[in-house]
């Protein structure tokens, strides 16, 4: 299946989380309040470091979010 990450089309497997997709692309999920790049840490919904935007909604925890065909993911937007 295909999703878009920051406008770029990416081929992904069903069952993957958005967090894993973003890490595989070498992207940070978000910027901290002082501008540091941050990525997923706990993988279980606790740390909130993996937040990003999906289909215009956010910030959402990407480690708790399975990929869906055609979803639009935007990182670094927090």
């Amino acid at each position: 299946m295909k999703i878009r990450v920051n406008g770029q089309e990416v081929e992904v497997q069903a069952g993957m989380s958005v967090a894993a997709v973003v890490m595989n692309l070498g992207l940070a999920a978000r910027r901290s309040v002082t501008g540091e790049p941050r990525g997923p840490v706990c993988g279980m919904g606790v740390c909130f470091e993996c937040r990003l935007w999906v289909d215009g909604e956010g910030p959402l925890r990407s480690c708790q979010m399975p990929v869906r065909e055609g979803m639009e993911v935007v990182t670094d937007a927090v």
Binding site: M16, S17, A19, M23, N24, G43
Partner: peptide, 8 residues
């Protein structure tokens, strides 16, 4: 956990 979610 992230590997289980598809991290390469």
């Amino acid at each position: 956990a992230l590997v289980k979610q598809g991290l390469a």
